[in-house]
């Protein structure tokens, strides 16, 4: 045996889901605390993961701590299952815990996401794990944690409202389009992670458990099932979500978040669902319905 061979870890040399059981217990305790104080950022002893910070280390630690052998995992980035980061994280879990994976939102028990909430409504019993780059919504106003901690503790959120005021004063509207701050359970101001504001209403009163992991900043927070999520706004400039004039070019959806795709170098573009599972499912259903109709009319003829 060469001297290096002893160092090479086989994939199954790692504990189930990479983290050791003690670490997982520590993270679960933080998760329980986070669920008990909705929207409150719980500091946790985040570990270094074999994934770069900012690439979902918080999310994978949370997922690693809640996932069990019987779970079915779905991983998305930008709403899609086949984007590089989603593929890499899904492969990581297939390697270190050998769980079943799926692209179907409905079939998944745990969904780890970056930047989107799936279009298909979640159900009780499902867990949605968000990857969070910057958990502190007040960071842009006050860079000091010693101060932001007090602002949260005393619910001093006036300065945050000032940033909305500035938007309206300068642009005539609130100009935050993603990572749109919201007050959870009427108490804590929370960053929903960089999901588009389009997705904020989906967080509200959601039957699923929503967990947020920020690896680099070592914070965990949560929105328990059926919890109020109020996006900040003004009475005369109420919160509103993005809308599109057209519909998805592939499935015709008029209710989903659309990505813009540039189709040639003359600037032609089309809009398609950002949620690939949602779009594919609708296309398949439409095709099946059409086939059924064709079959019926064929028989009639």
């Amino acid at each position: 045996m060469s001297p290096t061979a002893a160092l090479v870890h086989k994939d199954d040399g790692y504990n189930f889901a990479y983290l050791d059981e003690q670490t997982k217990r520590m993270i679960r305790r933080s998760l329980l605390k986070a669920l008990s104080i909705p929207g409150y950022q719980v500091p946790f002893g985040g570990r270094e993961m074999p994934l770069a910070y900012g690439w979902g280390t918080g999310g994978i630690q949370v997922t690693a701590s809640v996932i069990g052998p019987d779970d079915v995992l779905k991983v998305i980035d930008q709403g899609a299952d086949d984007t590089t980061n989603a593929v890499s994280i899904r492969r990581f879990f297939q390697t270190v815990c050998d769980v079943a994976v799926t692209e179907s939102t409905a079939e998944a028990t745990v969904v780890q996401t970056r930047h989107r909430v799936p279009e298909t409504p979640l159900k009780e019993g499902q867990v949605l794990v968000y990857q969070v780059p910057q958990p502190e919504p007040l960071k842009k106003i006050e860079p000091r944690e010693t101060e932001t901690r007090k602002m949260h503790a005393y619910a001093e959120y006036g300065a945050m409202q000032v940033t909305l005021y500035e938007d309206v004063a300068h642009f005539g509207r609130i100009a935050k389009t993603y990572d749109y701050p919201a007050v959870i359970n009427g108490r804590h101001l929370m960053s929903p992670s960089p999901i588009p504001k389009f997705d904020n209403p989906k967080m509200e009163m959601n039957p699923a458990i929503q967990l947020f992991g920020a690896g680099r900043e070592k914070r965990i927070y949560a929105v328990p099932p059926y919890t109020s999520v109020r996006s900040l706004d003004f009475d005369d400039h109420p919160f509103e979500v993005q809308t599109w004039k057209g519909s998805c070019a592939l499935c015709g959806s008029t209710t989903s978040y659309l990505d813009e795709v540039i189709t040639d170098d003359r600037g032609s573009r089309m809009f398609v669902c950002s949620d690939t599972d949602f779009c594919n499912t609708r296309q398949a259903e439409a095709a099946a319905a059409k086939a059924a109709v064709d079959k019926v009319s064929g028989e009639e003829a």
């Binding site: 270094e48 770069a52 910070y53 900012g54 780059p133 990572d179 993005q242 813009e260």
Partner: peptide, 23 residues
């Protein structure tokens, strides 16, 4: 490790947020 990860994460797709800003 933190700085490198975070700075380079801007390579990751940001289609959704960029779409929101574009709009």
């Amino acid at each position: 490790v933190e700085g490198n990860g975070f700075v380079t994460h801007f390579k990751l797709p940001h289609y959704v947020d960029f779409q929101a800003e574009l709009q």
